[in-house]
Amino acid sequence: MNNPKIYTMSFSKVYPLYITKAEKKGRTKAEVDEIIRWLTGYSQEELEAQLEKQSDLETFFAEAPQLNSSRALIKGVICGVRVEDIEEPTMKEIRYLDKLIDELAKGKAMDKILRK
């Protein structure tokens, strides 16, 4: 099976887009980083190392130290697709992150975004 093109995109190319989306709505880079760390288990230093080595999205999620078990609580539609219905694991992780950044940009409280 051919992997979608998004898997080969560098996380360092997508990351600034997440920050821009958040900042346009009055949110911060620190909040974006917190969401990414919560979802993936990366420390801030590990996150910055991934950005520096320009890992593709597939590698970024494959090397995540500890994917948060609460991520299964992330529900809803992103890019016209219901997140909980996505079968392919890597695509599901990418869409989880997209959904969390969307929630941030929509003004949702961090406690709710991080499923506390």
Rank of each mutant, 00 (worst) to 15 (best):
Q44P: 09
F61V: 04
A105Y: 05
S55Y: 11
T40C: 06
P89D: 12
P4R: 00
E84Q: 12
M110Y: 09
K53Q: 12
E88S: 01
L57N: 01
S70N: 10
D33I: 05
K116A: 14
L39R: 02
D98V: 03
T8C: 01
Q50Y: 05
K75V: 05
R37V: 09
I86K: 07
K5F: 00
T59Y: 11
F60G: 01
K29W: 04
M9K: 02
I113G: 06
A49C: 05
N3I: 02
K112I: 05
I74Y: 10
G80M: 06
R115K: 15
V77T: 05
E23F: 11
E88F: 03
F61N: 01
E103R: 15
E45G: 04
Y96I: 09
D85T: 08
K25E: 14
N3S: 07
I86E: 11
K75R: 11
A49Q: 10
S55L: 09
T40N: 09
T90V: 06
E45I: 06
E52Y: 13
A64I: 07
L47A: 10
V14Y: 01
E84P: 05
L51P: 03
L57D: 00
A109D: 12
D85M: 03
W38M: 05
A109P: 11
R82T: 15
P16V: 11
D102V: 13
G107F: 13
G76Y: 12
Q54W: 06
V83T: 04
L100Q: 10
M91L: 05
T40K: 09
A72D: 10
E34K: 07
P16N: 05
I6V: 02
I36S: 02
A64P: 14
I113W: 07
K13V: 14
E88D: 10
M1T: 01
E34Y: 04
E63A: 10
Q44R: 12
E63W: 11
G41I: 08
K5G: 00
L100H: 10
L104R: 07
Q54V: 04
L39P: 09
S69E: 10
E23I: 08
D85A: 12
N3H: 06
C79M: 14
T28H: 12
Y15W: 07
D98H: 11
T40Y: 11
E93H: 10
L104W: 09
Y15T: 04
E58K: 08
S55M: 15
Y15Q: 02
T20S: 06
L73H: 13
A62L: 11
I19D: 01
Y7E: 00
D98P: 15
V77Y: 09
R37H: 06
P65V: 11
E34F: 03
Y96D: 10
Y18P: 04
M1G: 04
L57A: 01
N2D: 01
S12H: 04
E88L: 03
Y15C: 03
Y7W: 01
L17E: 05
E23D: 08
T8G: 01
S70H: 12
V14K: 03
N3G: 08
M91A: 02
K24C: 04
Y42P: 07
C79F: 14
D56A: 04
E34D: 08
R71D: 12
Q54Y: 12
K24P: 13
R82L: 13
E103C: 15
V83H: 14
M9C: 01
Q66K: 14
L114I: 03
F60R: 02
V32C: 13
V83S: 07
